[in-house]
Amino acid sequence: MTALLEVSDLTVRFGGVTALDGVSFEVRSGQVCALIGPNGAGKTTAFNAISRLVRPRGGEIRFAGESLLAHRASDLSKLGIARTFQNLALWPGLSVLDNVMVGLHAEGHVGFGRAPLGLPAYREDKKLKAKAYAALDYFGVADVAHQLCTGLPFGTLKRVELARAVVLRPRLLLLDEPASGLTHGEVRELGDVLRTVRDELDVTLLLVEHHMAFVMDLSDYVVALDFGRNLVSGRPAEIRTDSRLAEAYLGRSA
């Protein structure tokens, strides 16, 4: 497997605080890679740097051999990168279908005002709507396509956000704490769903997650950070018993 995402010597500072200090790791094509570490380790900052939401002070981020630092956050969907957020980034006043349609407007140039006239842009809109509905069906939530997001169960909303993230068939999907707020049963279902996404849709996954049982069961490779630096990395079986990881989470006395 070749490296799809390469993070090299990444440094991010906020004023006098160094959030990332020379962090490096790779995500290979077809992998499920987890980025873990205690609170304040720099995981979200690394995600935000990859997503182009924060500007690094040093280092490089390359996707499919091309530097991401030359691109804006709005370019990522066209490059083949999608992301979900820890706090659901859905519009509660829009229908489920319309929320997924938002993810498709990077592909088209649809003006909703043209719909009554049946102009070509509207016909394009109908095609995009069919794609959005198919994505919802793939994640088993097509039955709520025309309901508002407000009031839907949290687990359902997680699936809606996944549908929106993969509707453009990205090559790399960034998942920010996807298991957060889910029941044990929903966490198991999520693991099955993400394996299916990886295998059937050929999507490489990079996730930030605190749910260690979920991480160790799902991931092919794990990168652990602590205080903004690389701590340990390897296959789940290799790092599970690493004393450095236990110390980072539990303290030296443990």
Rank of each mutant, 00 (worst) to 15 (best):
G80I: 00
T241L: 02
L173C: 04
T2D: 08
D192H: 10
I61A: 09
V27L: 07
G42P: 06
N48C: 02
H71D: 13
V193Q: 03
H105T: 14
L231N: 08
A46T: 15
R244P: 06
A34Y: 06
A246C: 04
R123M: 04
F47A: 01
R229A: 12
E66T: 13
Y221Q: 10
Q147Y: 13
R188W: 03
G155N: 14
F14Q: 13
T150L: 12
Y138Q: 10
V167M: 02
I239R: 03
T156S: 08
D242I: 13
A134L: 05
L201M: 14
G22F: 07
S74T: 02
G58P: 12
S8M: 04
K129N: 08
L218G: 09
M216N: 01
A145N: 13
V223W: 09
Q86D: 05
F63I: 05
G228R: 03
G228Q: 07
V54G: 02
P178Q: 05
L104R: 13
P120V: 11
R198H: 07
R114F: 05
V54P: 04
P236G: 10
F63H: 05
A246I: 15
D21F: 04
A145E: 12
L88T: 06
S180I: 02
L250S: 11
R159K: 15
Y122F: 14
S29C: 09
R244K: 14
R229L: 08
L218Q: 09
T196E: 12
R28P: 06
S51M: 00
A82V: 00
R55H: 09
L20N: 15
L10H: 10
R62Q: 14
A70D: 15
L157S: 10
V203G: 01
A237G: 14
H71K: 15
R252M: 10
L174F: 00
L157K: 09
R83Q: 01
R52P: 01
A135K: 09
G111Y: 08
G58R: 12
L175C: 05
G30H: 11
I61H: 03
R57S: 15
V167W: 00
L175I: 02
E247I: 07
